[in-house]
C-alpha cells in the first residue's frame, strides 16, 4: 500500500504558489486581451467591408483549426526568426492565448450580437441612436448576458490550456509542479495538490458565475 506523504510538498509550497500566481497572471492577460481581440474580430466579421471581414475570418479560422501547442511553438520559436525579435516565454504565451481565445470569443460575440432581435436595433435607431451608441447601450448589454455561459466555459478551458506553457519554460503551476516532483520524488502528492488547486479555483469561479447569471435573470428579459 502506498504511503502518502504531503509534508515535503507543503514544505516547498512557495514554489507552487509562485506557479499558481503565474498561471493566474497569464490567464488574466489572455482573457482580457482575448475579450478585446474577440470584440474587434467580431465587429470586423459583421462589417459590410470585405477588406475587414476576410482577414478576420482568416485569423479566426487559423486559430480555431490549429493545435494550441503548435501555435505556442510557432510564436516562441518561429516568430523570433521571422521578425528577428526577442521572445520571452511570457510574451509568446500571452500572445498565443490572447489571439487564440480572441478567435473563440469572436464567434461567441458574433453569435450573441446577431441573436438580438431586429426590433431592438430598429427601435434604437428610431430614437436617433448612431451605430456605436446602439451597440454600447442596447445590443451589447443584452448580448453579453446571453453569451455569458459560453464565455465562462471558454475561460475555464483557457485556464486549463495554459498548462501547455510549461513546455516553453514559462513557470506556471504545472511547470513548478514538475520541478517540485523531481526535487521531492513525490510526484503523486504534487500532482494531487495541483489538481486540487485547479479544481477549487475553477469551482469557485463557476459558483460566482452561476450567481451572476441568476442576477442577470432578474430583469426577466430571458423569459420574454
Amino acid at each position: 500500500m502506498y504511503e502518502w506523504n504531503f509534508a515535503p510538498v507543503f514544505a516547498e509550497s512557495g514554489l507552487l504558489l509562485a506557479g499558481f500566481r503565474n498561471t493566474l497572471i497569464l490567464t488574466a492577460t489572455a482573457l482580457s486581451g482575448g475579450l478585446v481581440v474577440g470584440l474587434l474580430l467580431a465587429f470586423a466579421r459583421l462589417s459590410h467591408r470585405r477588406w475587414l471581414r476576410l482577414p478576420a475570418d482568416l485569423v479566426i479560422e487559423v486559430f480555431r483549426t490549429t493545435p494550441p501547442l503548435v501555435q505556442l511553438f510557432w510564436f516562441y520559436f518561429g516568430l523570433p526568426i521571422v521578425l528577428s525579435v526577442e521572445m520571452t516565454p511570457f510574451m509568446a504565451a500571452g500572445l498565443t492565448f490572447t489571439i487564440q481565445s480572441g478567435a473563440f470569443f469572436a464567434e461567441i460575440f458574433r453569435a450573441g450580437i446577431v441573436s438580438i432581435e431586429k426590433g431592438q436595433w430598429e427601435s434604437a435607431k428610431a430614437i436617433g441612436m448612431g451605430h456605436n451608441q446602439l451597440m454600447r447601450r442596447i445590443i451589447l448589454p443584452q448580448a453579453v448576458k446571453r453569451m455569458f455561459p459560453s464565455m465562462m466555459e471558454r475561460s475555464i478551458e483557457l485556464m486549463k490550456t495554459t498548462t501547455l506553457v510549461a513546455t516553453v519554460s514559462y513557470a506556471d503551476l504545472l511547470f513548478q509542479a514538475n520541478e517540485l516532483a523531481q526535487k521531492t520524488f513525490r510526484p503523486l502528492e504534487v500532482y494531487t495538490v495541483v489538481a486540487l488547486i485547479y479544481f477549487v479555483s475553477i469551482s469557485c469561479v463557476s459558483f460566482f458565475a452561476a450567481r451572476l447569471e441568476k442576477r442577470f435573470a432578474r430583469t426577466g428579459e430571458f423569459s420574454v
Partner: peptide, 18 residues
C-alpha cells in the same frame, strides 16, 4: 437628425428589456 425629430411606435413594442 431626422429620427430625433420623428417618433415611431412599432407593432411589437420593442422596449429595451434590460
Amino acid at each position: 437628425e431626422l429620427r430625433k425629430r420623428v417618433g415611431m411606435v412599432f407593432q411589437q413594442f420593442n422596449l429595451f428589456p434590460h
